[in-house]
Every structure is written in C-alpha cells, then in structure tokens.
Design a protein around this nucleic acid. Structure first.
Lengths: 187, 187
DNA sequence: ACCTGAACACCGTTCAAGT
DNA sequence: ACCTGAACACCGTTCAAGT
C-alpha cells in the first residue's frame, strides 16, 4: 500500500490525460472528439490510452469524477442557504458543464458504465436535497417528491435554452409552491 | 401537382422504409442500428437509403413525423380533461416511444436537423398546454411558467425510471400547486 | 509497467455506373 | 427516377511486440 514513485507517476499521468480529455470534450463535444485526437494532444500513440482506461466511456467517467470533485469543494459553503438559492447555485455550477451533462444523458442507454455513474450521482444529489428539506422542517412524506421535482426542474432548465427571466419565474414558483403547502417553512 | 403513379410509389416506399427503420430503432436503439441493417431488412443496397434521405438523421426525422402523426390522431378526445389527466395521457403515449425520445435528446447537439425538429415539437406542445391552461381559467401571466414546468416534469419522468406511486405523487403535487395559486380553477 | 505499429471490424456516406 | 458495387475516410478497440 506504500505510495511508491510508480503510483505517483501514474496518478500524475492520469490527471494530465483527464484534463486534456476534459478540455477537448468541452470544446468539441464527446462524440466529436476521437481517441486519436486526445492521443495527438498528449503526444502518445492512440492505443496508449487503453492502458489507462478500458474504453472511451471509462475515460469519460474519469473526467466526470474529476469535475465532480472540483465542484464538491465549493459545496460546504452552501449549507444554510434557502432551497431556491441552492438550486440556482447548482444550476450555475452545472451550466459550466452543460456539454458534459448532455453527454452523460446521451450515453445512458449505450454505456452501462455511464449509466452506473449517472444513477449514483442522482442518488447522491437527491439524498442531499432530501436532507436539506428535512432540515428546513418540510414534512417527511413530501420530501422525496419535492426533491425529485427539484431535480427534474434543474435538468429541464439545463437541457433547454431559457432566459434569466424564465429561470427566475420557475424557481420562484417552485419555492412558493413547496413552501405554501406546509405553512411557510423557510424553503 | 397531379398525383401520378410515381408519387404514389415513392410514398409507399418511404412508408415501408420508415416502418422498418422505426421497428429496428425501437428494438435496438438508433445508434445500434446501422444503415446496412435497415437496408438488409428491406432487401436493398445500403446506399439506396440515401436516395430517399440525405442522412441517417433525416431518416430519423421521417420516423419521428410518422410516429407523431399517429399520436395526433388520438389527441382530439383529450380536449376537455383536467391537466393532470392530460399529462398522464401524454406520459403513457410518450412512454411507448421512450427509446425515440431519448434518441432525439441524445442527438440534439450533434444534428441540426434533429435539433430543429425537437424545438418545433416543443413549441407545439407548450403552446397547446398554454392554451389548455388559459381555457381552464388560469391567470395569463402564469400560464407560460406552468406549461414549462409541466413539460420538464414529463421529460423528467420519461428519462428516469420511477414507480407508479412516484409518478402519481408528482402529478398530484403539481396539479394541486398549479390550482391552489389561483383559487381552485379546475386544473 | 508502460508504450507502440499495425491491423480488425465496423461506421455513415459518396460517386460513377447501370437500368 | 431509381438502384447498385465499390470505394472513402473515418471510428473505437485489440494484439503481438518492444523496452
């Protein structure tokens, strides 16, 4: 288990690999970026990538986890804020990875490994939102439904182009509806 | 403009082509179905398909329009029903084309022709829902927001596996929230 | 352990040629 | 107008071989 030189080197190389891949995926999209292209940017042979990742989708998972861990570092600061603000923050955060979000959804039915990552991510987000709702005093039986609705609204806003005005109206309406039904908890 | 024999033949052949393609797309998915495979099922050479459609995506558009026109024939009967029932009907209808819905969303960023079809379809659905809401007496300024939310919820339910219980809770909550805010209109 | 050259089995699409 | 055979330029991935 000792971290020897080799492990460090491998980690560093994977990091460089994922950063390059992430850049190309975001610039051109996942489908439009070939393994050849990534390899060329790294100055290695195309099949070298397969020593580190079993497939292009596994490389995508590596990229996703890297992006996720970066986002999670900013999470603690969001603890006490109202739900509407938290959704707005999540939206801003995800919007910077719009391309990646769309890619994940587009490969759900084609790639079991992406499906697994997606489902796990969703479960994490939903349970986090449910916890936040409970903490805000929302009736326990309603929390799951509200969390799912919140998720669907965020995904809808991400997938479809919209104005700041539209976004505001939707989040406002949701927060009001969620709050109203339980006598004005601070949602 | 006269409908001569040639036109009829072409229509019939396109119909057969699109039905075969639709079947394979639904059985195996769009990506997993090659032009070769479709051609083989029709007993023609692969490039024959390109005489009728400029690309695989244009063939998909043909299939989509065919499915849509079938669905639209059942639409008139839905006129007077409450919004919740209409959403449930739309969900059942779309769920039979889950694969196609997912395919359309997955190709939005790759294919301008699919993007155009999708946007047009969305506009049609939203304006239909807005009309239904206005007819039900919903305040005009709220209609657009509610229609968008309804759309997002339908898409969310379609994209993510869920129980009948979850679906019921979400539709119930939405109808209640939409109705409450304007003194109990028959939404 | 790490990387390569060469190949494999596809893919959507094009083009010149036939009828 | 309609259809074909043959090819093109890719693609993700594999494998045997090198160090």
């Amino acid at each position: 288990m000792a971290k020897n030189k080799r492990d460090v080197d491998a980690k560093v190389k994977k990091a460089a690999l994922e950063e390059t891949a992430a850049r190309l995926f975001m610039e051109q999209g996942f489908e439009a970026t070939s393994m050849q292209q990534i390899a060329r940017a790294l100055d290695v042979a195309p099949n070298t990538l397969y020593w580190y990742y079993a497939s292009k989708d596994e490389l995508l998972v590596g990229v996703l986890n890297r992006l996720l861990s970066q986002t999670l570092q900013h999470l603690p600061a969001m603890g006490g804020l109202p739900l509407k603000a938290q959704m707005a923050w999540l939206l801003d955060e995800l919007e910077q990875s719009r391309e990646m979000v769309a890619t994940v959804h587009s490969r759900l039915d084609q790639s079991p490994v992406i499906r697994a990552w997606h489902d796990q991510f969703h479960q994490f987000v939903e349970s986090t939102v449910i916890f936040a709702l409970k903490t805000a005093g929302v009736e326990a039986s309603r929390c799951a439904t509200l969390a799912t609705v919140a998720t669907f609204l965020v995904e809808g806003l991400l997938a479809h182009p919209h104005s700041a005005h539209q976004r505001h109206d939707i989040l406002e309406w949701f927060a009001a509806s969620a709050g109203d039904q339980l006598g004005g908890a601070a949602v």
